[in-house]
Design a protein around this nucleic acid. Structure first.
Lengths: 336, 336
DNA sequence: TTGTACGCGTTATCAA
DNA sequence: TTGATAACGCGTACAA
């Protein structure tokens, strides 16, 4: 190491981190030399020694989904300001990969972990390792209620109710729902919120008004739309559990010559950028993914830095907003 | 360590990696015990010892851009199959952050690096460190011609020419261009491709037909459209350097009551998902981001594993395709 | 087939 | 203010 050329390793080490007990002339010289030699500290060794990596691991299904990448941006913003680095692991919605990711993360000695569960996951043993080894773990969005950890979520039930009641408020009488995978809590909650809104307003609750999808893909959205359109008494409003399927519904409805929102009003979920581009622009729930990420990061960092606060489980609920756009602006109301 | 309960550390170590010279009964027992104890190898220590991390660092502007996240998915797919892990660093298009990212990556002893440069970057010293320390470096998309490294790109010049000639082929006579930041090579190349197409076809090449933007944002696209629409002799076709601006152009044109493609045909660049959702659907260049990522990953892994192949610089050019959609399907041609 | 001993590059501790 | 030394957890050459 660079010390050859001057003094002792410890002096170098201290100088590089501007330790107060080092002469400032010395400190300067060391810095200059490091620069000249193109010296990069080996953080592997440092982390090993200090038993701290400043790494926050993130396990998410897919990076190329807008909701996820927004959340990551939020995590990154908070983490980097606090001096942490974010390493991302994609599960591709596969349980096996998620398990592998968790193992990796344990091995890399991450200081904390933030996770959004894979579709497939319904066994949580692989995540217990974090608890057992005192690695702070925070879930967001697709959380796990079986495990006692901190969570960041939105009120999916309430948001779905709000979305459905909005459809009711513009005069829809038969409201359908495109439902997500019912293995996942958030999609169950959204279905329940939809049902509760109907119940409270004494509207029809027919099974055939609910179309269950595997993964809320565009293709499934189109299939759902076709089913609804073929019904003898056609629904006049649809609440979809995500934007992708909602947009497909809009496109399919238009393809058959019907009008959105006049023949069928549509509401989505997530406020992804596409909801502004489809025509008519999509009314949707803004779930503030970026803020969820920020909150999750703050939470995990707090646990890392204040381990004494031994709170078993805390849940943060991020606000959500209904963003009303043309896909639910019926003529009679635009006069306002 | 687990050895307390059995034999020596080295036996454990060897057993865990299924070393041939260990009794298979022994090996099995060790694995079982590790499982029971919830043992996770400390990869920090292992990497330090082996002087190899199996990490590929990726420096990109922003994870929440579709092109980038697709490329990352491609990188990840190849890397994980080859036993490498991908760590992502976002520069947010800031030179300072990119510099910081490079330092981090050096410190974390990444085995290789894949980079897509930030908008701001026009000094490349921070990347020299990789070369100086024999860390393989591969650029993609926004590459750096000043440095002698491997690169993965598309033929931006040719693609832009193809896009522009497509506009010409459908009968456009006055073709405008929404140009990206001219500091970046790819955007310069796209402008040049546009110009070359006009030249070859003896079409008007007026300065006012080129609208220079800062970052090809939606807002700038709308401004460009307005400028074009206000011109005394209005352009009848526009080639935009990305999809975001192209979509804004379409929306702005429609807002003023003009028709796409009949009054003004529009072509974008990248084939992002939104290009399918806008109406009319956007004709665009598919730049195969996922494949660029794959190619970059293969390239960097080859360099890691075969350092003897001392090729100074190799450039892979990924194919690109013009995807024709309604935004350039004029009535007279749809009869085909 | 297994054990011993050392070193990877850093930092914490203690002594000077 | 600085230096010597040990230790972090693992892999490996060598010895047994």
């Amino acid at each position: 190491m660079a010390e050859r050329l001057k003094v002792s390793p410890s002096t170098i080490s201290r100088a590089l981190q501007n330790h107060p007990s080092i002469g400032k002339k010395m400190t300067q010289e060391v810095h200059k030399l490091a620069e000249k030699l193109g010296y990069y500290p080996n953080s592997l060794a440092a982390n090993l020694r200090r038993n701290k990596t400043n790494l926050i691991g993130v396990i998410i299904p897919r990076i190329d989904r807008h909701f996820q990448s927004s959340a990551i941006s939020g995590i990154e913003e908070v983490a980097s300001k606090a001096g942490y680095y974010v390493v991302i692991f994609q599960s591709n919605n596969s349980y096996e990969r998620e398990k592998e990711n968790a193992r990796m993360l344990m091995s890399s000695q991450a200081d904390g972990v933030i996770a959004c569960l894979a579709m497939e996951t319904n066994n949580y043993d692989h995540l217990l390792a974090f608890k057992n080894n005192n690695v702070p773990l925070v879930f967001f969005d697709r959380v796990c209620y079986e495990l006692e950890t901190h969570k960041v979520v939105i009120d999916d039930f309430g948001a779905a109710m709000k979305a459905t009641e909005h459809l009711i408020s513009i005069g829809c009488k038969r409201i359908a729902h495109v439902a997500g995978n019912q293995q996942i809590a958030i999609f169950r909650d959204r279905l329940r919120g939809y049902q509760e809104a109907l119940r409270r307003n004494n509207l029809a609750q027919e099974d055939e008004l609910i179309y269950y999808t595997e993964d809320l893909s565009g293709k499934e959205g189109a299939l759902a739309a076709r089913r609804f359109l073929e019904m003898p008494s056609r629904p006049d409003g649809v609440f979809c559990s995500n934007d992708t399927s909602a947009i497909s519904v809009i496109q399919e409805v238009k393809r058959t010559g019907c009008k959105v929102p006049d023949d069928m009003a549509v509401v989505g979920f997530s406020n992804t950028p596409v909801s502004l581009i489809v025509e008519p622009a999509l009314t949707t729930i803004d779930d503030h993914a970026f803020e969820m990420g920020q909150a999750a990061a703050r939470m995990v960092i707090r646990q890392i830095e204040q381990p004494q606060e031994d709170i078993a489980s805390e849940t943060i609920i991020i606000r959500n907003d209904l963003v009303v756009r043309e896909s639910t602006l019926k003529q009679k109301l635009t006069a306002d």
